[in-house]
Design a protein around this nucleic acid. Structure first.
Lengths: 167, 167
DNA sequence: ATAAACTTTCAATAATATTTGAAAGTTTAA
DNA sequence: TTAAACTTTCAAATATTATTGAAAGTTTAT
């Protein structure tokens, strides 16, 4: 396998993986491509490399920037915008974890709190419902706290966590 | 909010959340419904409650059983099959984590190993690619090891992990 | 101010994923 | 056996999501 084949395979695989995690394919591919590029890349080049339209490139770059994992760069004397990806993996994982916590876990917790607060003990069914959703609330809240704690370390959190666990 | 509204809201929310995590809406809804049901439920009742077709119910129940988080039950003197969900949350999280590791992380690692093994140091671009994909391999491998370790505890692993981290 | 060089937006279109429902398959009871 | 009661399968239909591309918008240099 040569460099270009490898790069292509990486971008494709990352894109497919993205879909399985609720991230759209192009978004994941752009991120993959930028992550293995040593230089900032123009929109034109992204379109070219991934064979996508200008609109598609623009929208997905915007989404990646909203997630805080792709940055705009300006080059000396160049009018065009260039893009780079966050390449530090601890930082990348931290940003993704925090963002998903904010966008998905916190709203879910709100609903869990709400539905587990109904005041109905009139049936076994209702009692089970309250009990189970309360447990779920506690579990998810704990997981969310965990994410906060873990991403707080910033540097090398994954390694540090593993070291802790071995002890 | 009464019991039925709460139950409905929970099922809907869980379904929407599922989509964001690459799980189809109906599959997540069935799981949610079973999780808050105190009794085993027949396919008929699932179809009724979620307003879905027989085929849809059948396929998604099958998928949930493949994941090992929904079980078939047989009732005394009943011909029909009944279903229950894994209700222990540690067990549930463990099964999901293990299954995703097997289905997604391990194949991704294989590709990362493959593409990071190209023998090309002829350009800065190629060197960066190899370097970055190697780092990614290490990171993902570490995360996967972490999942193995963490789910090994079985009981109360999330709590135990948090306790460790506080120390 | 103007025009060139670029980016963003969004309605239309295409691609993908899910759902249906009827036919085929299976199991059980008699 | 057979037929009733159930489940599974899968091609077709539907719904959802992503993508295109051209028009509108923005910025910069002169």
């Amino acid at each position: 396998m040569n460099f270009n084949e490898a790069k292509n395979k990486f971008v494709q695989t990352w894109g497919a993986l993205g879909s399985q995690w609720g991230i759209n394919k192009t978004m994941a591919q752009i991120h993959a491509f930028l992550m293995v590029s040593s230089e900032p890349i123009s929109m034109e080049e992204i379109m070219q490399e991934l064979q996508i339209s200008r609109g598609n490139a623009s929208m997905n770059l915007r989404a990646l920037m909203d997630w805080g994992i792709v940055y705009k760069e300006f080059k000396q004397g160049e009018r065009r915008e260039f893009f780079t990806a966050e390449k530090d993996l601890d930082e990348l994982a931290t940003k993704i974890a925090r963002e998903r916590s904010k966008r998905e876990i916190k709203p879910a917790l709100k609903v869990l709190k709400e539905v587990s607060s109904i005041d109905d003990t009139s049936s076994v069914e209702a009692k089970h419902f309250v009990d189970q959703t309360k447990k779920l609330y506690d579990f998810v809240a704990k997981a969310d706290t965990m994410i906060d704690k873990v991403t707080e370390y910033k540097d090398n959190w994954l390694t540090k966590l593993i070291v802790k666990m071995m002890g």
